[in-house]
Each structure stands twice: as structure tokens, then as C-alpha cells.
Computed example of a mutant assay.
Amino acid sequence: MFLPSPLPDIILFDGVCNLCNGFVQFVIRHDPQSRFRFAAWQSEAAQSLLRTHGLLPDVRAAEPESVLLLSGGRLYSHSTAVLHIAHILGGRWQLMKMGWVLPRSWRDALYRFVARHRYRWFGRQESCLLPTPALKARFL
């Protein structure tokens, strides 16, 4: 069973990807308790955070293909990160827990398929998302 950490959970995402930015906006809208913090892969804050936790070499294979979740000192990637995020959001998003019945290899294959085509399907920005002043505290 996944137990939430007392520390804020951190979502690392591709800051130039429109799909990823949309996902971040979705999480912000459905996280009124502000349990999540965010950092774009491209930011020094994200790279520093990964170095501090000794995770930088481990995640190079996923960068920037995957949204990552750093929660309770553990790093989750691909579909597992999304399922954990949905669980933490609670409410109706917990229905996504049905995704756990699928083998991880199947879930991640679908995740990687979308990730490979995300720029073509959803576009990309020239630079990372700049949060509004009201949301700035939630970004590293």
C-alpha cells in the first residue's frame, strides 16, 4: 500500500512539452491541499534535487520521456508515477487504481508510445512554463 509522505511530493516533468504542462495544470486544479511541488526537467532545481538524492545517473534513461514522482524518498517513473499521483489526488482519480491490474510492461509500453509522439500530437514550447505569482511557491 502506498502511504503519503509528510514531505511534499515532487513531480518532475518536461517543461517544454504541452502535454506535460497540461498534466501539471490538471494536478494543480485537483490538488487543493497543495501536496505536490513541481520542477521542470530542464531546470537547475530539478537537476540539483536529483543529484542531492543520488538519482541523477538512474534517471537519465527516462529523461525527458517520463513524468517522475519523488515521494517518500522513492522515485517513480512512467505509468507507476501517474498511478501514484492519481492515488495521492484521491477522490474519483483513485479509480485509476484499476491500472494496477495491468502488467507494468503493458502500462509502460502505452506510456512510452504516447511519450514518443507527444510533441507531434500536442506540440512544444520554446521555453519552460512560467508559473503565475499565485503558483510560484509550488515550483522549485
Rank of each mutant, 00 (worst) to 15 (best):
S105K: 05
A109Q: 10
A115Y: 10
G90I: 04
G91F: 07
G90K: 01
I88M: 11
A109I: 07
L83A: 06
P103R: 10
I88P: 00
T80C: 05
G99V: 08
K97F: 04
W106G: 00
R112F: 03
H87N: 09
R107Q: 08
I88G: 02
L95P: 00
L110D: 00
G90S: 04
F113P: 01
G91Y: 10
G90R: 02
R92A: 04
H84S: 10
L102S: 10
S105A: 11
T80L: 10
V114S: 09
I88D: 02
M98Q: 08
V101G: 09
A86Y: 13
R104T: 13
W93V: 01
G99R: 06
M98C: 11
Y111I: 05
V82Q: 03
L89M: 07
A115G: 11
V101F: 15
W93T: 02
D108T: 03
R107N: 08
L110Q: 01
Q94K: 11
L95M: 06
S105R: 08
Y111F: 09
Q94R: 13
W106V: 12
W106E: 00
M96D: 00
D108W: 02
R104I: 03
S105Q: 11
R92T: 06
L102A: 14
I88E: 09
W100K: 13
S79T: 09
V114H: 13
H78Y: 06
L102I: 11
G90V: 06
M96T: 05
V82K: 02
L83K: 03
W93A: 04
